[in-house]
Structures are given as C-alpha cells and as structure tokens.
C-alpha cells in the first residue's frame, strides 16, 4: 500500500513544574509508524500513553522535539521537521491534515452558530466564495447526517446534542477535503447508543476515496471494528504494531495482552489480570522497557535494557525481549 503518512522517531517532551523542581515529561519517544492511503490505523493505549499528543503533533498544534513527520502526496511531499509554522506550506498541511477532537462541546466556539467553523474552513482553503458558502456549508452538514443543513448551520452548539456536535466537528474537518483525518477519541464523550453511528461515519470517510483515518482510542472494540492496522502505545513508546486482527485477537506483547484481557473481562471480573496495576512512568523513565515495572514476566534484562522492535511477521512487530522473531 502506498504510504500517505510516515512518522519517524517522533519524540515529544513537556516541561512540568517550576524551577528548581522542573522536570521533563516524556510524552512520546522514538515513535515510528505509517498510515497508508485509504487505510484506517488505530493508535491505542491507556490514558497518558501519548496517543493524543502524537495526533496533535501530526496536526501541527504541538511541536515535537525530535523526529520527522512526512505526508506523501501524488505530486508533492510535505515534511514537518518542526521549523517555523507560517506561510503557504503550513496552509497546505492544514488542508491535508484535519483533526477531530474528543470533546465536541469544547471544540466548538460557544458564541458562534455551528455553520461558522465549517464556513471558515471552506473559505480559508478556497473551497467556497462568499456567494456559495451558505450552500456549501449546508451540503457539508448534510453529508454528515445533519438534515436540513441550512437550518442546522444557524443553530448554536448548546442547542445541539453531543452526537450532533460531533457531526459538526466531522463536517468542519472534512470541509478542507483532507487526505488524513485524525480522530482523537471521537466517541468517548458520546452516549453508547450513538457511538456506532459516528464510527460508521469514519468507514464512509474512508470509502469515499483515498482518504485515510488515524483513529486515536482507548476502546479496543471500536479499533477492532473499523481499523485495518493497530499501533499499541505505552508510556509514549510503540509496544506492538500490526494488522488489527493479529494485534487485538492474538497480542504478543504483555501490555497488549493486558489491554486485550481488560477489554474482554466483562465475564469474570475477579479473574486476575496478567500484570500489576500502575501508571506509566513518563517522568524520569529508566533505561529499560517502560512496561517492566508492571510486567509479570519482567526479567533483569527488561529493567536494564530497552528492547528493540522485533518483527514477528512481515507486517507485525513487537517491542519485547521475550518475543522471538519468527
């Protein structure tokens, strides 16, 4: 599959606390993966695993400290090595990469009717002129299931339900006709009853052409439902990546096994988890595997030496000392 997005060695750090107790939080470290054209890739991991941060770096809201993000095009190729963020190249990136936020209530400005953000996205990227913009906004809203679009365009965010607001966010993101849509937990703030509808929208986004989706989620069920490939993150590092079926149904990494076990635990809640509880150590991480402190099978080597990403099949790789290449 021709790649659309490649992420190489991405590292993101945030300062926490004030001098003299200033520390560095490592939100992402040496993250590499790619998204093919027309592919849905899911970034999964628990809270604090760095998945949202990676999405925001690709969407150019946050700068990275190291690494490279490249968008491959039919003609041109855009590389973000985190230099200045202005000008035409930046606008082209904005047109090609769009982000859908987790909280649809917070991502819409409360003082404007919901037609405003869609109209702005269309106008900024030359996809509508003042005469046609109302028509185009209505059409964009109807494309995500808000009928009649012209009426919805004049409503304010507080007059819409959570699911309707998220549809507006999706319409805003699709308004620039992007190549890559990053969806940051798009269903986690929604009622369970409407999650399926929103998820189905993402499969139609992909079906409509060569568009790709990077789905950021902690919900393995939705990843399994729509994703082609899955990247499992822990403490900002890639633990396992590969085809969705292979990773989610037969995980190789102990952390991926823990995630899968936690997701399917609805039956017997008293059964012990295959690892200890705890939170990833992202401030002052040690030299070894980040998951070692919680891993039931950790050895001295795991605590001392960071494992490399090992291929277990051509498109399936695991970062663990215990996994042997096949």
């Amino acid at each position: 599959m021709t790649p659309l997005l490649t992420v190489e060695g991405l590292g993101v750090e945030f300062p926490v606390g004030n001098w003299p107790r200033r520390r560095t939080l490592r939100a992402s470290f040496d993250v590499s993966f790619s998204v093919g054209r027309g592919e849905i890739v899911a970034l999964v991991g628990e809270s604090g695993s760095g998945k949202s941060t990676i999405g925001r770096v690709i969407a150019r809201i946050l700068p990275a400290k190291a690494g490279r993000v490249t968008l491959h095009g039919p003609g041109e190729r855009d590389t973000d090595s985190f230099g200045p963020r202005a000008g035409e190249a930046s606008m082209r990136w904005r047109q090609r990469v769009q982000l859908i936020f987790q909280d649809p209530a917070a991502s819409l400005n409360p003082v404007f009717p919901v037609g405003h953000p869609v109209a702005r996205a269309l106008r900024l990227h030359g996809r509508a002129d003042p005469k046609t913009v109302d028509e185009r906004v209505a059409a964009a809203l109807e494309a995500v299931g808000l009928h009649p679009g012209a009426t919805f365009a004049t409503r304010y965010p507080h007059q819409l339900s959570g699911g309707q607001r998220q549809r507006v966010s999706i319409a805003r993101a699709l308004a620039t006709d992007p190549d890559l849509v990053i969806a940051d937990e798009p269903t986690s703030m929604l009622d369970v009853s409407i999650r399926m509808d929103i998820l189905r929208l993402f499969t139609t986004i992909r079906a409509s052409g060569t568009r790709s989706v990077l789905l950021i989620t902690h919900d393995l069920a939705s990843a399994r439902l729509v994703a082609d490939r899955v990247v499992v993150l822990y403490a900002g590092e890639v633990m396992e990546l590969g085809p969705a079926r292979a990773v989610l149904d037969a995980p190789r990494h102990p952390y991926a096994q823990l995630l899968a076990a936690a997701a399917t635990r609805s039956g017997d809640l008293r059964a012990p988890l295959p690892a200890a509880e705890g939170a990833p150590k992202v401030i002052d991480p040690g030299p070894g595997c980040p998951f070692a402190p919680r891993c039931a099978q950790a050895t001295d080597r795991c605590r001392a030496e960071r494992p490399a990403l090992t291929a277990v099949s051509p498109d399936h790789a695991v970062r663990c000392h215990l996994v042997r290449p096949e």
């Binding site: 150019r60 904005r94 400005n109």
Partner: peptide, 26 residues
C-alpha cells in the same frame, strides 16, 4: 487551552484572527 482554539488553528486561522474573532466575543 479550550479545544475550539486548537480547532481554529487546525482550520488554518491566523493568530490575530483567533484572538480577535474567536476569543474576544467570549
């Protein structure tokens, strides 16, 4: 820090327009 500011950035709005048009009415 609200997401609608980030959303305006992703849409490609300029900084001054985000401050004057998106933030000030709030």
């Amino acid at each position: 820090s609200r997401d609608f500011v980030a959303a305006a950035q992703v849409s490609g709005e300029s900084t001054w327009r985000i401050v004057v048009v998106e933030l000030l009415p709030n």
